[in-house]
Design a protein around this nucleic acid. Structure first.
Lengths: 281, 281
DNA sequence: ATCGGCGTGTCCGGTTAACGGACAATATAC
DNA sequence: GTATATTGTCCGTTAACCGGACACGCCGAT
C-alpha cells in the first residue's frame, strides 16, 4: 500500500474528515453510544459530541429517547441517493480502463444504455496517444448504428431488447428509423453474436477518420454496458485490431463485470478502505 | 429569512456542516463543477476545493478525467448502508408516537418483525406518566402470545405468515411451541381480525400488572409493524381502553403507514429540509 | 457507606487550520 | 484587440476546533 509519490497527507479538513469517520462508524454499528463511537474511531469523546450535534442539526442522526443511543435516520439516504446504478458501473470501470489503455494504445470507453441510446460514461481519450477528437463523455450513440449499441442489444435480456426496439420505432432520431426493419436488425445481431463483438456502421461516425468496435460487459450473463474501442481507420482493419487486442478487451470487460457482481453480492460491508476507521491513537 | 432572535445557531462545526451541504448538493446534481457547486450552495469556491479534496481522500468523490466534473462514487453508499428498512419505520414513527402519547396517556410502542419475533423499536414509556417498567426498546416479544405479534401475523401477507409459522415450529423458545397447533393459531387470528386489533395472552407478560393491545401498521395493505399500547390491568379492561383510544391508535398507525408509502414512492427527492442548501449569502 | 469504575455532559484557554480576498492563467466570444 | 467566464493557488488573519480538566450519576464490590 505504498503511497506512490510520498506526499504525506494530501490535504483535507480535519473536523470534516472526522465527521465522515463517525458517520461511517455509525453505519457499521447502527445504534451507538458516544463512548462506543469513541472507541471505534479513536476520536475524543468531546469531539464525538460536537460531531453528533452537527449530524443531528442536519437530521441525519437522532437520539433514541429510551436507550440514549444514536441512530441514523432515513435522511442519510440523501447523502447517496444521487448515485445512480449507471454511475456505478462507470465508476468501477475507471481504474480498469486506465490499465487497459496502457496495453491497448487505442482509446477505449464505457457506455451504458439510457433514454433509447447508449451514452459514453467514461473515456480514455486524452490518455491515448492516438486520439483525434477529445471530448466524448456524455456523447449519445444510436443503438442500431454504433458498435456500443449493437454490442449491448446483442447481449441484453430478450424482453429488454424487444422493449428497446419497440421504443425506437417511435423515436424522432433518423438513425432509429431502421428499427422498423426487423430482418436488418436480426442480421446485425446475428453477425455480432457470431463474432462476439460489434462493429459500427458507416452511416454513423463520431469522426470520419475513425472506426469503432465494441464488446459487451456481461453482468450475470447479460449486457449492462458496452466497452468500445476506437481506432484510426487507415491504420488497421477491424479484424487486425480484433486479432491484436480482442482478448485484452474481453478481459477488461470480464473484470468490470466481476467487480459488478461482487459489489451486488454485498450491499454494504467493509473491506479495502482508503481511510482506516480506527486510527492509531 | 430574518435571523429571528432566539437561538442563533444551535451548535455545530462550520467546516463539517459545509461538507455535508456540498455532499448533498452533489447528490442533487450528479456530476458538477466547482463553480456549479459554488452557486448551488453559496459556499466560496476556495472552500469547495478544500471540501472536494477531503471527499476525494475518502473515495466518496472522483473527478471525471475527460470532463473535469466531480462525481459521486459507489463508496458513498457506505454513508447510509447501515440504515436498515426496519429502522426506517421506527424512525418515521418517532414524532407520531410523540404526539400520540399526549392524547393517549398510556405508553405506546412500535415493534417490527425480525428473527422469528417482534422487537420493540421505539417506545414512549418514559414520556407517559403511567409507566411501570422503563427500558423496553430492544425487548423481544413472542409472535403468538404478544399483542404485537398477533397483530402482525393477522395482517401480514399470507406467504409470509406461513413461512413465519413454519419457522416457529423449529424454534427453541417455549412460547413458540404452540406453532404446532394450527387450529389454535387460526382461532387467534380470526378473533384479531374480527376486532381489528390484538390482545396479549396471559401466558406472556412483560410485567404482571400490565396488559397490552396492539394494532398493525398497514403499509400498502399489509402489516409491516405493530403499534402496541400497554395499560395497567387494574385500571381498565381491554374493551374500555379500545373504546376510548382505538381511533387514536388507528389514526397514528395510518399516519405512519402513509408516511412510509410516500417515502417509498420517491427514493430521493428533496422537500422539507431542515437545512437549506442555499444559504443567504 | 464508601470506594472505584464506568459512562455522560460541559467549560474554557491555546493553538490550529479553515476562511476568503487577491492574483494568475486559460478559454471562448465578440 | 477587449471582455467575460471559469479554473486554480497563495497566504495572512482569525474564528473555530481541540482536548485537558472538572462535575455528576449510576452501579457493584468491598
Amino acid at each position: 500500500m505504498a503511497e506512490n509519490s510520498s506526499e504525506k497527507r494530501a490535504s483535507g479538513m480535519r473536523s470534516a474528515e472526522r465527521l465522515l469517520i463517525v458517520l461511517r462508524a455509525l453505519n457499521l454499528r447502527n445504534g451507538a453510544t458516544v463512548l462506543e463511537l469513541n472507541r471505534d474511531t479513536g476520536i475524543s469523546r468531546q469531539a464525538i459530541y460536537r460531531i453528533l450535534d452537527t449530524l443531528r442539526n442536519f437530521g441525519y442522526v437522532r437520539r433514541q429517547e429510551a436507550t440514549d443511543r444514536f441512530h441514523l435516520t432515513h435522511m442519510v439516504r440523501r447523502l447517496s441517493s444521487g448515485f445512480k446504478d449507471e454511475e456505478w458501473i462507470a465508476d468501477i470501470a475507471v481504474p480498469i480502463l486506465g490499465r487497459l489503455v496502457q496495453e491497448v494504445v487505442w482509446p477505449t470507453e464505457l457506455s451504458t444504455f439510457s433514454d433509447n441510446a447508449m451514452y459514453i460514461r467514461e473515456s480514455t481519450r486524452g490518455r491515448s496517444p492516438f486520439t483525434i477528437d477529445r471530448v466524448a463523455v456524455g456523447q449519445r450513440l444510436p443503438m442500431l448504428q454504433s458498435a456500443s449499441g449493437r454490442a449491448y442489444l446483442s447481449y441484453c435480456p430478450d424482453p429488454e431488447r424487444e422493449a428497446i426496439i419497440e421504443n425506437l420505432k417511435s423515436s424522432d432520431d433518423d438513425f432509429d428509423k431502421v428499427a422498423h426493419k426487423p430482418d436488418y436488425i436480426e442480421r446485425i445481431l446475428a453477425a455480432t453474436r457470431s463474432r462476439g463483438w460489434a462493429v459500427g456502421d458507416d452511416t454513423f461516425r463520431l469522426h470520419p477518420k475513425t472506426e469503432t468496435l465494441a464488446v459487451p460487459v456481461l453482468v450475470n450473463g447479460y449486457a449492462r454496458a458496452s466497452l468500445p474501442l476506437t481506432y484510426i481507420a487507415s491504420a488497421a482493419t477491424a479484424e487486425q485490431i480484433a486479432e491484436r487486442h480482442m482478448n485484452q478487451l474481453q478481459a477488461a470487460a470480464k473484470e468490470i463485470a466481476d467487480r459488478m457482481e461482487e459489489m451486488q453480492a454485498r450491499t454494504d460491508d467493509d473491506d479495502d478502505d482508503l481511510i482506516p476507521i480506527r486510527e492509531a491513537s
